[in-house]
């Protein structure tokens, strides 16, 4: 596999022989993945196959056992690399939102820009309001997370992840904890981001959505990438029996 993408630029994210073990349990068994600038990669696979662990290695929320993860040219396994600086360029959205319950929606969004001295308070507030508007929640600026619906919480969480103007967004099953009627509003926000050209790695169980927004789909099983390719190829022309099995169950 070449280190350059089709367009000739270096990959935004480059993963080489990534291995991750929890104790003696090897969860990732040597992954190689490239994500190009502006590319939307969806990761699918059965529960427990290592999708979340893979995603969490991309911003080093998990220690990496072996292999390399390079983001924007910075090797995360290099101890000299300032992880906090790299993480500012990678937004992450969690299955259970992980909003800060003791802050309002706006404060959740303003926290990082203000603490990291990227913006002064007034500018951060303006930026926060703009982001809230973008996810359709301007009127909830002063609401605490506890008073928001699941869909609203996840949209605030996305706005928070965007506050540092990241070049990359990671989504870990952003809609699986939601009631069905709220899935759409969150997917719409992600869809908009894709349309704007954001580089994204999206772990999802929404096969229709993956098919619609993904430039490429990765199917993981038991810690390895079983199959990857254009959505059409994965969903309509699955070759591996394990992928066929999986799709038969979820579709």
């Amino acid at each position: 596999m070449s280190d350059a993408t089709a367009s000739g630029t270096t990959a935004k994210i480059r993963v080489r022989d990534l291995k991750k073990s929890f104790g003696s349990n090897e969860v990732l068994k040597g992954l190689d993945v490239d994500v190009a600038e502006g590319e939307v990669v969806c990761v699918i696979g059965p529960s427990g196959s290592g999708k979340s662990t893979f995603l969490r290695c991309l911003n080093k929320l998990e220690d990496i056992t072996a292999g390399t993860v390079t983001v924007d040219g910075y090797d995360l396994t290099d101890p000299k690399v300032d992880l906090n600086a790299v993480r500012q360029h990678i937004g992450m959205v969690f299955q259970h939102f992980n909003l800060f319950p003791h802050m309002t929606a706006l404060q959740n969004i303003m926290l990082a820009p203000v603490e990291l001295k990227k913006l002064d308070k007034a500018a951060a507030r303006a930026k926060g309001m703009e982001l809230l508007k973008r996810v359709g929640l301007a009127e909830k600026a002063d609401a605490r997370p506890a008073s928001l619906s699941g869909g609203q919480k996840q949209r605030v969480a996305i706005a928070r992840a965007l506050a540092m103007n990241p070049g990359i967004m990671l989504f870990d099953e952003a809609t699986s904890a939601l009631d069905p009627e709220m899935v759409g509003e969150v997917l719409q926000v992600i869809r908009d981001l894709a349309a704007e050209g954001m580089t994204m790695v999206v772990v999802t169980h929404e096969m229709g959505f993956a098919r619609e927004v993904a430039d490429r789909v990765i199917f993981m099983d038991a810690g390895v990438i079983c199959e990857e390719g254009a959505p059409e190829a994965i969903f309509s022309h699955a070759e591996q029996p394990r992928l066929q099995d999986f799709l038969a169950k979820v579709l």
């Binding site: 911003n59 929320l61 906090n84 600086a85 790299v86 993480r87 500012q88 990678i90 937004g91 992450m92 969690f94 992980n98 909003l99 800060f100 926290l111 990082a112 603490e115 990291l116 969480a157 928070r160 992840a161 506050a163 540092m164």
Partner: peptide, 8 residues
């Protein structure tokens, strides 16, 4: 984790 993921 959410806070660390923001770069804090």
């Amino acid at each position: 984790e959410a806070s660390r993921s923001l770069g804090l």
